[in-house]
Amino acid sequence: MASEDNKWYYNTATGEVAQGLVFDSTHRMGPYDTEAEAREALEIAEKRVEEAEAYDEAGEDWGEKPSWEK
């Protein structure tokens, strides 16, 4: 059994959760280690997006204006 068969996945089209690669890849989120994590796939993704946006915003603040704006 491949390692992907032991993982859990969330189907974005139906909201179903299953173990293994049973869903079409266009609607599959994962892999997740547990069924509970797969059930929270949308919340996990939303949190990751918020963290990435915060990281991007922090990286844009160099503490001083560009030379052409002085």
Rank of each mutant, 00 (worst) to 15 (best):
residue 55 Y to A: 11
residue 48 R to M: 12
residue 44 I to S: 02
residue 29 M to D: 04
residue 56 D to C: 06
residue 58 A to Q: 05
residue 23 F to E: 01
residue 38 A to G: 03
residue 30 G to Q: 05
residue 25 S to V: 04
residue 38 A to M: 06
residue 55 Y to S: 11
residue 64 E to I: 14
residue 43 E to C: 01
residue 47 K to P: 00
residue 51 E to D: 13
residue 68 W to T: 09
residue 49 V to G: 02
residue 36 A to W: 05
residue 53 E to C: 06
residue 29 M to I: 07
residue 47 K to R: 14
residue 25 S to K: 11
residue 26 T to I: 04
residue 65 K to W: 14
residue 56 D to H: 08
residue 36 A to Y: 06
residue 36 A to S: 06
residue 42 L to T: 02
residue 53 E to N: 07
residue 24 D to H: 05
residue 55 Y to I: 07
residue 26 T to P: 00
residue 27 H to T: 15
residue 40 E to N: 14
residue 38 A to Y: 07
residue 61 D to P: 00
residue 60 E to S: 10
residue 31 P to S: 12
residue 41 A to P: 07
residue 46 E to K: 13
residue 42 L to N: 03
residue 52 A to K: 08
residue 46 E to Y: 00
residue 60 E to G: 12
residue 30 G to L: 11
residue 51 E to F: 00
residue 39 R to I: 03
residue 53 E to I: 13
residue 51 E to L: 13
residue 25 S to H: 09
residue 68 W to S: 10
residue 32 Y to K: 02
residue 63 G to M: 13
residue 55 Y to M: 09
residue 23 F to R: 01
residue 49 V to P: 03
residue 33 D to R: 12
residue 24 D to K: 06
residue 30 G to H: 10
residue 62 W to Y: 15
residue 63 G to V: 12
residue 24 D to A: 08
residue 60 E to V: 04
residue 31 P to Q: 08
residue 22 V to F: 08
residue 22 V to K: 01
residue 31 P to W: 15
residue 54 A to M: 04
residue 62 W to K: 15
residue 60 E to I: 03
residue 51 E to K: 12
residue 40 E to A: 13
residue 41 A to I: 07
residue 34 T to F: 15
residue 33 D to C: 10
residue 68 W to N: 12
residue 54 A to P: 02
residue 58 A to G: 02
residue 46 E to H: 02
residue 63 G to Y: 08
residue 41 A to H: 01
residue 67 S to L: 08
residue 39 R to W: 01
residue 52 A to L: 11
residue 32 Y to D: 01
residue 67 S to R: 03
residue 67 S to T: 10
residue 51 E to N: 10
residue 62 W to H: 15
residue 59 G to A: 12
residue 47 K to Y: 00
residue 34 T to Q: 07
residue 26 T to R: 12
residue 31 P to R: 08
residue 24 D to T: 02
residue 23 F to H: 01
residue 30 G to M: 10
residue 51 E to G: 05
residue 63 G to E: 12
